[in-house]
Structures are given as C-alpha cells and as structure tokens.
C-alpha cells in the first residue's frame, strides 16, 4: 500500500519526479567532480555520463527506445529531456550571447555546416563501402546517418532504402551524438574549443543538436548559444543535400 501509493504519486506527477531526480543526479555529480576529480572534470560532464549509463540500463531493463524514460514512474524524464524543453532551454541561452561574436564568426559558422555535413556523409559512405555495401541507396543512407540520426532515416525513406539499413543509419547517428556528448569535454583543450568562434565552428561541424548541447554543457556553458546556433541548421542542410546532391555523386561513382 505504501509503495503503491508512492508510485502512483510519482507517475501522476511525472515532470516533478523528473525535476527531483535530475536535481539529485546533478548534485551527486557535482559532489563527485569536486571530491574525486578535484574539479578537473566538470560536474555536468559526469552528470551527462551517468545519464547515458542510466539510459543504457533503462533500455536493457525495459527493452524500449527511450532509455530511463520507458520505466513508467520515470516517464517524466522523457518530457523534461524531450525536444520541446531542450529547444526551449537552448533558445533561452541566446539571451546571454554577444551579437558581435555571432557576426564575427557568422560566415565561418555557415561554411562549417556545409563542410561538416559533407565530411560526415563522406566518412559514413566510406565505412559503408569498406564493409562491402555497393548499392548507392544503402551507401547514401549510411552516409546520411553519420551526419545525424534524423538525416539518415529522412534520406533513407526518400531514396526507398529498406528498414534494416535505415535502422543502421539511425544507430550511426546515435553513436555520433552520444560520443560527442562524452568526448567533447575530454578533447576541448586540444581542439581549442574555448572561444565563441571556435564553438560556432564546432557546432557546425558536429551538427547533432543533442550531442552539441551535451558536449558544450559539459565543457563550458557560456559557449552553448554559439555552438547551438550553427548546429540547428545542420540537420536541415543534411536532409537537403544527402538525398539529392550527395546521392547523385555516390550514384555516379558506383
């Protein structure tokens, strides 16, 4: 009776459950960052890593696709971490952005989106070819998946790829976004990700909104608006180029 009533309160107030839980998780992570890494690793980097680990456990536990959010009393995590709140918070970070910085790196930011989409597509396509794929539709779908997990299925369905290759392209995009979240704080110094203009280029090159959002949060939250600004154009540009120009190029080669 006690447990049941707790569970039903948690389920009926899912978003509040998520607020409370994330607060505990973030607090725990900052405590670890402070105590065990002496502040070398950002608390939010640890929180994101724990979040991903919990998502893995949740996925294994439920067999669902939404990580922790598939556990009924944790469904609020799915709301809080869903696209609506994510985009709302990203837009809010622009409030503190400097217009001068955006203008200064604007052109390179736009260029980096085009370069980033082309580079990821090329690498995804090359991996597909290395694994023996020879059908231009399959090669292009995998290449598009290496851009983001939205570009992959959009391209795949536009070209009539079958569902197994579309699933692979989504997995490639997921791998990318998760790796960007985890690896960004670790490589930030080496790739000179310490300034609004490098953040804009980083956002344009990576392109995965979730990856960039997580990666910059874990590195330096002040850089978020610059990276997010360019990253949000990436998926659209990818959906534009991958099934048209890039597919056409792949088809002329194979």
């Amino acid at each position: 009776m006690m447990l049941e009533s707790i569970e039903s309160v948690l389920i009926q107030n899912g978003l509040m459950t998520a607020f409370a839980l994330v607060a505990l998780l973030v607090g725990f992570s900052y405590w670890i960052a402070d105590k065990w890494t002496g502040g070398h690793l950002h608390g939010s980097a640890i929180a994101i890593a724990i979040g991903l680990a919990l998502a893995y456990l949740g996925g294994k536990w439920t067999g669902g696709q939404q990580g922790l959010a598939d556990i009924p009393w944790l469904a609020g995590i799915g709301v809080l971490g869903g696209a609506m709140f994510r985009d709302f918070a990203i837009v809010a970070t622009a409030f503190g952005a400097e217009v001068r910085e955006l203008k200064r790196a604007g052109i390179m930011g736009i260029a980096s989106v085009l370069i980033g989409v082309a580079l990821s597509f090329l690498i995804g396509a090359a991996v597909a070819v290395a694994f023996g794929y020879r059908d231009p539709v399959q090669i292009s779908t995998l290449g598009a998946g290496a851009a983001t997990y939205i570009v992959g299925p959009v391209t795949g369905s536009a070209l009539g790829a079958d569902s197994s290759i579309i699933a692979l392209s989504i997995a490639a995009g997921l791998t990318k976004s998760i790796l960007v979240m985890i690896a960004t704080p670790l490589v930030a110094k080496r790739i000179q990700l310490d300034h609004p203009h490098s953040a804009m280029i980083y956002g344009g090159l990576m392109g995965t909104t979730s990856g960039v959002a997580g990666g910059l949060a874990a590195t330096d939250p002040k850089l978020v608006p610059y990276g997010a600004m360019t990253a949000t154009f990436y998926t659209g540009v990818g959906c534009l180029l991958a099934p048209s120009l890039f597919y056409w190029i792949v088809r002329s080669v194979f």
Binding site: F19, L52, G81, S210, P221
Partner: peptide, 16 residues
C-alpha cells in the same frame, strides 16, 4: 539548460 540536457542524456537510446 544543463539539468534538461542531463534528462535528455537519460532518455537516449544508448542500447541501440
């Protein structure tokens, strides 16, 4: 922003 991103991480399809 950061708490929302943490929740976002916790709902990724990591298993896939």
């Amino acid at each position: 922003y950061i708490p929302i991103v943490v929740a976002m991480a916790a709902k990724q399809n990591v298993v896939a």
